[in-house]
Design a protein around this nucleic acid. Structure first.
Lengths: 183, 183
DNA sequence: ATTATCATGTAAAAGGTTACATGATTTG
DNA sequence: CAAATCATGTAACCTTTTACATGATAAT
């Protein structure tokens, strides 16, 4: 699926692997992320399949930039994926819940420390969304009004991320209280 | 991490790979799932590491049952993992959000069909939790009152699952309205 | 009659992480 | 002076999925 994250991103404008990583880190990261190493190898595969094409921009004192462009075949593959309905449910892996589920014989204080630590991490995430991501969307539309529809959908995914983090913090608060009072 | 799902489950009582699959499907599945093939190969690895031990119960007309038991080393490994704080944030992969993010050039009706389909799938999940899982926890405690503390934590994870699905349905409703009105 | 359940597994492929390797420039 | 940024990649490993293989019994 990283495939489509890359094709979708390159559909906006040509980018290097490094730039794709940055793009994803500031836009899709909270529902789809990837390491640089995976991005580089996947781009190579996509080029071998003819869905992207790369050109080299020479640079001095640092590695040449390899800029990837979406090909017509790539655009079609992306459109085909986008217009095909997604009939599955994603199956999340939540390490914290897994640990909690089996923690009945862990001592109370360790459990509370664990939960409070997670609370602070998730609270930080909420702050990040509000500060960074919302601003980036507004900026993109200001530069290019043709992205209005895109921005509508970007905001929808952002709303999901915010609601998810708010839910997480709320659930942690409830669970911390539960453990304090009844565990 | 499947490793700990298996060790944690076997800490309750010995099970076969097949039974572990069923156990996970009715308890951890909404935050941790695995296929049978992965369970079988992981159990083999765990036995090679001495964390579980298996004995064969012969059967006629169907494959012999291979029953896995947690070893003392396995119990210690599990406890070590449980008492070690989890300092990361899980990085979810939400295919629906990925598609939505790049869907600005998809036609309105396809988008709405997509979102409505997902709404019905998530609504089903809500119903499943309420019907199935809550009952199983009550049953387990009734059979074995020593599981009271366990049940407290199981209910906490269940509450997360319910809140998550409720959030998802709510977000889909909001997003469907947004697309209807402004896309 | 077909599908679900019980019950085991293996093999190949895909997806993803971690570690390694290099090195100049800019910012704090 | 140290850390972050820019910029590329490869290799080994681990995790997960998909496909294959078998076959009786019970339920619809």
């Amino acid at each position: 699926m990283l495939k489509y994250a890359l094709l979708g991103s390159l559909n906006y404008y040509p980018m290097t692997g490094y730039e794709l990583k940055q793009f994803m880190d500031t836009s899709t990261a909270y529902f789809w992320h990837a390491r640089l190493s995976q991005i580089y190898t996947t781009l190579k595969d996509l080029e071998a399949s003819g869905l992207v094409r790369s050109t080299i921009e020479p640079q001095e004192d640092r590695p040449d930039r390899r800029v990837y462009t979406l090909t017509e075949a790539g655009r079609q593959d992306l459109q085909a994926w986008l217009s095909q309905p997604y009939t599955a449910l994603s199956q999340p892996k939540e390490t914290l819940l897994l640990k909690l589920f089996f923690s009945a014989r862990v001592d109370r204080e360790s459990l509370l420390t664990q939960l409070r630590l997670q609370r602070s991490l998730h609270q930080q995430q909420v702050d990040t969304y509000q500060a960074d991501t919302a601003g980036l969307i507004a900026e993109a539309v200001a530069h290019n009004p043709a992205l209005e529809k895109d921005a509508l959908l970007w905001e929808a995914t952002l709303r999901f991320g915010e609601a998810y983090e708010a839910l997480y913090v709320q659930w942690l608060d409830d669970t911390i209280r539960l453990v304090e009072e009844r565990f």
